[in-house]
Design a protein around this nucleic acid. Structure first.
Lengths: 180, 180
DNA sequence: GGTTGCATGTAAAACGTTACATGATTTT
DNA sequence: AAAATCATGTAACGTTTTACATGCAACC
């Protein structure tokens, strides 16, 4: 078997209630995408795979003339989900182009750094805004809400760091001007 | 042209001084890997591509009987690097399996959550340790050192969040026991 | 009648990791 | 003599994104 975390996103959502692939995607886009993104190109093939493995079951449930497949967790699927939840997390990966640009900023004698920091700060503020929008329209209970507040606080912290670092850079530049 | 951030990791390092692919990889593993990982399978093909594009130049520089190719930035490569440094960062991606497990912890009635939080905390503490090891053996100046301190503070913050969330969970459980 | 939302899917490309293969040199 | 480090490279595999294709239904 050996499933990917992306497969568990699907199992996890179907653990709440039966859903279509489309519905899974729209919930992902308001929740896990900030720490685990999933695309249609993964969801539909994965639904088939999980179906074939007997972890989920699909049923055609058209809405009027519009076709629709609703999947639900089987007992085996729920068992698999719970086993995963009890095992230790393995994957933690970050790809941050802003940090990369800051890291190499000496190649512009540091002249590119203030704008990079400002762009990063804006980016993280924008994530905070998006998360707060989600927060405003979700009940403030349970684990999803815990993760949501984590996201908000985390990106606020990072945005504040960008500001601090920007100010430190300015101060340094001012000190250099006084010395020179 | 249109290069990936991974290509700019190579250009950025060669912007410091000429290096072999092996050397680039060993520096990546002590620096950018915490926010932009790169493997040999990317480095060697990318060195050829950048060479063919005229952004870097390779020269055979064997050490004794051991073959070795040292690459350096061309003027065009330096220009390309600087243009990238001055453009706004695009990519910010996080993949955090721990948050995913926490997000779906209701499927175990929250029983899996304390262990997940503890595993996450340990994971981030371990990253802090690794970064502090790097810090101890690097001169505390310039942008790489700024990024290093960012990493240390960030992962310390996350580890502290895990602790706070764990305590909040305990308190909640205790309150429920009193009520019941 | 047009836009938006619901709904499913695939193909190609891009990206990235892992394992393997090879061999010299340096250190223990 | 063995282990670690320096050094280069590829092939297979797995993952993920993007673009495309299609069509119904609800709302304005």
């Amino acid at each position: 078997m050996e499933l990917s975390p992306t497969a568990y996103v699907i199992l996890g959502m179907l653990g709440w209630r039966p859903m279509s692939g489309y519905e899974i995607k729209s919930i992902v886009d308001k929740s896990t995408r900030f720490f685990w993104a999933v695309s249609y190109g993964q969801i539909y093939p994965e639904l088939r795979r999980l179906s074939k493995e007997g972890l989920i079951e699909g049923k055609a449930s058209p809405q009027g003339g519009r076709k629709r497949n609703v999947y639900r967790l089987t007992p085996a699927g729920r068992k698999e989900l719970r086993a995963w939840l009890r095992s230790a997390p393995q994957v933690y990966e970050l790809r941050d182009e802003g940090l990369l640009k800051l890291f190499f900023a000496a190649a512009t004698d540091g002249r590119s750094a203030p704008a990079t920091l400002e762009a990063m700060r804006r980016g993280h503020e924008r994530i905070v805004d998006q998360l707060q929008l989600v927060e405003a329209e979700s009940p403030p209970v349970g684990f999803p809400s815990l993760i949501l507040s984590h996201g908000i606080e985390l990106h606020q912290w990072i945005a504040a760091w960008c500001e601090r670092a920007g100010r430190a850079l300015e101060d340094e530049a001012a000190a250099r001007r006084r010395t020179a």
